[in-house]
Structure formats: C-alpha cells, structure tokens
C-alpha cells in the first residue's frame, strides 16, 4: 500500500473515532487530571492553597477513613463471593441443564429486574423487609412471629441488596463462558472416573475462570462504588467509602480531600483486583475478552 492510500483508508476510522476520543479526553481524562491536581492541594493556616500530600496522609492517619475503606472492601469481597456462589449454579443450569427452548426465557427473567432503576429495586426490597413490611406481615399473620422484627437496616440486608443488584453482572459473563464449554469435556471426565465434585473442580471451574474473574471484577467494582444500596438498606451502620467521598465533597466542602479519597479508591481497588488476578493465575487480557 502506498502511504497515500494508507492515509485514505485510515480517514474513515479517524472520523468515527474522533467523537469517542473527544468524549474520553474532554469528559473523562481532563476532569480526572483536574481532580488529581486538586487532591494534592491543601489549605494552610493562612487560608492559601499549597501543594501537599496531606490529603493522602490523612487517609492513613485517621482510623475512621481507612477503617471505612477496609470495611467497604471486605464487604465488597464478601458480596462478590456470594454473588459468584449464587450465580454459578444459575448460569450452569441455564446453559447446561435447562431445555434449550427455555434458555432465552430464563435469561430474560434474570434481566427483568434491571428494567427498573436501582432506586426502585431497593425500595422494592425495603417494602418487603421493613418492620411494617410484607414479609413481617405474613410472618405475624401465620403465627411464626409474635412481634414484627426489623429486617432492614443491618449488614445482612445490605449484602443481600448488593448481591441482588450485582447478580446480572456475574451471570452474563458466566453464561457466555459456560456456553463455550463443550459438554463432552464433562462427559469425558465422568467417563474417566471422576465424580461431580471433581468435574466441577478440575474441569468446569478452570474452564470458566476467565468468566469468573471478569464477573468478579465487575461485581467487586460495582459493590465498592455503590452508594444507594448501602445507604438505604444498610441504614445506620453502613458507612461506605463512597459516602465518605460524598461527605467530603458535599457536607464538608473539602473537595481536595474528596479527590484524594477518590484516587485512593481507584488505586487500592485496582491493586486488590491485580492481586486477585495474580492469585488465581489469570491474565487481564484474557479476562476482558
């Protein structure tokens, strides 16, 4: 190809890419640079803004911040593991067990809750779980409980809400990865003398690993970055790190501290994912595919 014709063949590509690149640059990259710059500015005693890493040090100095982060991260990991434990059998049932003509129907059922916004889903849960809610009503009516009990506003309710919100993002990658698993591999393992447990451990899970990893990354990040569910369902004990960032920006007017927290969230969660990938021996390129 001559340089001229090569340039010509690239032109349509450039035309199509320009809006996306502009979008990325103007709305994502530039504001991030600005936030990054802001996160290194602090107000000194005379009220002037100076360069400093204090906003970052503050995170480690003040136990409430890193404890909240640790709590958030640990809960996000728990949510990820629980979501995986529930989603895996569901995905396996849909791809390998259910009659083929029901597959689409089941996938649709999974998708249904996501036709309404997260807020509506959470209010749905709240109507079910609250002390004067549907579940309590039936438990009392059937004589199982003497008094209605508060099922909302605790960590278990919050985790349940997060798992529910995350399900789809785990099931979809699992569906595609399990769909690509040749049934004969399972039969072959069975034929060679394995029992169900060994088949799951040595054939199905290794095959599904890229899907497990990508689903887990998405669920972990979504849970870590969630704001509504911990706040509304977790109630009074549910300080989530995102809320901490919100409070810095909105309640304390401290944008510099808030930006620093935002970047810490980005860096530490990336680190956690990196460690997770290393521990399970996965490559990011394969997982993203």
């Amino acid at each position: 190809m001559t340089p001229l014709s090569r340039a010509r063949s690239r032109l349509p590509l450039l035309i199509f890419l320009t809006p996306i690149l502009l979008w990325l640059l103007l709305l994502i990259v530039l504001p991030h640079f600005d936030l990054l710059r802001m996160s290194f500015r602090v107000e000194n005693n005379s009220g002037d803004m100076v360069w400093s890493a204090n906003n970052y040090l503050e995170f480690f100095r003040e136990p409430i911040y890193w404890l909240t982060f640790t709590r958030t991260a640990v809960y996000a990991v728990i949510v990820t593991v629980l979501t995986l434990c529930i989603a895996f059998p569901v995905a396996f049932y849909i791809t390998k067990v259910a009659p083929p003509r029901f597959k689409g129907f089941f996938s649709l059922l999974l998708l249904m809750p996501f036709w309404v916004s997260e807020l509506v889903r959470i209010y749905g849960w709240m109507i079910l779980l609250r002390e004067s809610g549907v579940i309590n009503h039936f438990l009392v009516a059937w004589g199982i409980l003497q008094q209605p009990v508060e099922l909302l506003y605790n960590d278990i309710a919050m985790i349940m809400g997060l798992v529910y919100t995350s399900m789809l993002f785990m099931v979809v990658p699992l569906l595609s990865v399990l769909d690509s698993l040749d049934d004969s591999l399972i039969e072959a393992a069975y034929d060679l003398g394995s029992n169900s447990a060994t088949i799951v451990r040595s054939i199905i899970i290794p095959h599904a690993m890229p899907g497990i990893a990508s689903g887990s990354i998405v669920v972990f990040m979504l849970s870590l970055g969630n704001y509504l569910t911990p706040n509304l369902m977790g109630g009074k004990n549910s300080l989530w790190f995102t809320e901490q960032i919100y409070n810095q920006f909105i309640a304390s007017f401290n944008w510099n501290q808030g930006s620093a927290f935002g970047f810490l969230l980005l860096v530490i969660s990336s680190l956690i994912i990196f460690i997770g990938l290393k521990l399970t021996n996965q490559q990011l390129s394969r997982v993203i595919r």
Binding site: S184, E187, A188, Y190, D191, G193, S194, I203, H207
Partner: peptide, 21 residues
Amino acid sequence: VAPNRRPVNLIFQHLALFPMM
C-alpha cells in the same frame, strides 16, 4: 452402574481433551 464406575472408556468424536491441562 454409572459411567464413572463402568470398566469402559469412550474416545469422543472431538476427542474432548482437557484444554486447561
């Protein structure tokens, strides 16, 4: 007798070798 207990083995049409091993 379940397949994993039968004294027979099957070579599959597409072999079904385990790609992860």
